[in-house]
Design a protein around this nucleic acid. Structure first.
Lengths: 245, 245
DNA sequence: CAGTGGTCTAGACCACGAG
DNA sequence: TCGTGGTCTAGACCACTGT
């Protein structure tokens, strides 16, 4: 009957256009991780769509990992927790067997000119400078992961005024609070190498021991590359489990 | 109104009970991979459910990877193609750059008593015997993967009357046609090791070169373990991509 | 209790594929 | 043209959460 008040290509399904619209709101910071988004009913009234259509849009965003439903309470912006992603790949255990909380030990934090490879990953132009961090992740005083991190200086300048040593073990909350940058998704590529001298020293390994290398490109809600990092971990702790269907 | 003619716990949602029922039909071989299942309309009429409910049940099975929808044609039993799963993990390329079709080179096929580990994976009792196959997967005469395969003899006895050398490069179609066993899903665990002498020889590697080990447990539609295999591949060909959200 | 998401229905119309 | 899956509606009732 009446024209639905939704932007976007009118040839696309309404639920998709609503999903796109909500994704855009998310990117613009209309709601923050942990916030409740409007209820299905509110959205249906606001958009003039049927409840079922709204539901389908929300379902899509839930599938994408952006939203989270809680029966009886509402639909919420999901808080991505990337630092558990390490434990998808490595079986780190603390001495007491319980949940391992890797401590961050910063070894360096400077501005530098990124390599061409990193520059392209971060979609920076040739003049752009970057902040680079080198750190160890440590469990029970045992180094388990060695990391090299690159950030475009433009967005993360505030980090240089900070004492990262005292700032906590997780970087993404710091990116958020100090730089206003929210990491919403990431791509990772795993490969296997033999450790060079540097990595051997950092992780306490024998020369040429196998190491697993994880390259991660983290992005904001709108897909802008925010951070590139490369992590080395001992391969004998590596284990990845998957289903095929 | 009328009682829906569906088995199962009546406290469960109807779409879930229908999905369970269809999954059971699949397991029982009512339809084979590639077959078309009844249309949404037919199912709705048969079960006395609304079309939307049937749709939800099918959506679930599609998510599980059991079915596949083709707009305008129907809903089909998915043909799982596991041998492309290698290429999720390894970047094998043929000399001419095109699609790599690894050739199977059988090295041994005998009956044997499985180790306790394999026996438990296959849920066999202590008296049960097994068939074991050792083979190389070869691309352009280069060995890329070394495999050790274990099957419960009870289900796969027909294999021993066969000349596997001439039977083709993919085992799962043979399991199907010769033994009536359809592989519907599998779990894989990836780890990294350093190559022992045996693996070095098989893959043409230096001693102590890193290798990626893939353990796979393949199951039928009802979850019965059908095959356990362990594959070794050179780690410098390994690469795994994933998304985090 | 009110408000949320979850299930289910009945029916309309659209888009695709094949004869 | 027909049968298939895909989108969308309008409304009923259920189940969970908090007050």
């Amino acid at each position: 009957m009446s024209a639905p008040a939704l932007k976007g290509d009118h040839r696309l399904p309404l639920y998709q256009r609503l999903a796109d619209s909500l994704r855009e709101d998310l990117r613009a910071g209309r709601w923050r991780p942990g916030d409740r988004v409007p209820s299905e009913n509110e959205l249906a009234v606001d958009t003039g769509l049927a409840a079922g259509t709204v539901r389908q849009a929300l379902a899509r965003l839930v599938d994408e990992g952006l939203l989270e439903r809680r029966h009886g309470k509402g639909t919420f912006v999901r808080r991505p927790s990337f630092d558990q992603s390490l434990f998808r790949f490595f079986r780190f255990r603390s001495i007491d067997g319980t949940k391992p909380v890797p401590v961050s030990r910063i070894r360096a934090c400077t501005t530098a000119i990124p390599s061409r490879y990193v520059r392209e990953k971060l979609q920076m132009n040739e003049e752009g400078r970057a902040i680079t961090i080198r750190r160890l992740r440590v469990i029970d005083d045992q180094p388990v992961l060695s990391e090299e991190i690159w950030l475009p200086e433009e967005r993360f300048a505030a980090l240089m005024d900070l004492d990262l040593q005292k700032a906590g073990d997780l970087l993404y909350p710091i990116y958020d609070t100090e730089c206003g940058q929210i990491v919403a998704s990431a791509e990772e590529v795993l490969t296997v190498e033999t450790a060079d001298n540097d990595v051997c020293q950092n992780l306490g390994l024998d020369v040429a021991a196998p190491v697993v290398v994880i390259e991660r490109l983290a992005r904001s809600y709108d897909g802008t590359p925010l951070e590139w990092r490369r992590s080395w971990g001992r391969a004998d702790q590596f284990s990845y489990h998957t289903e095929i269907r």
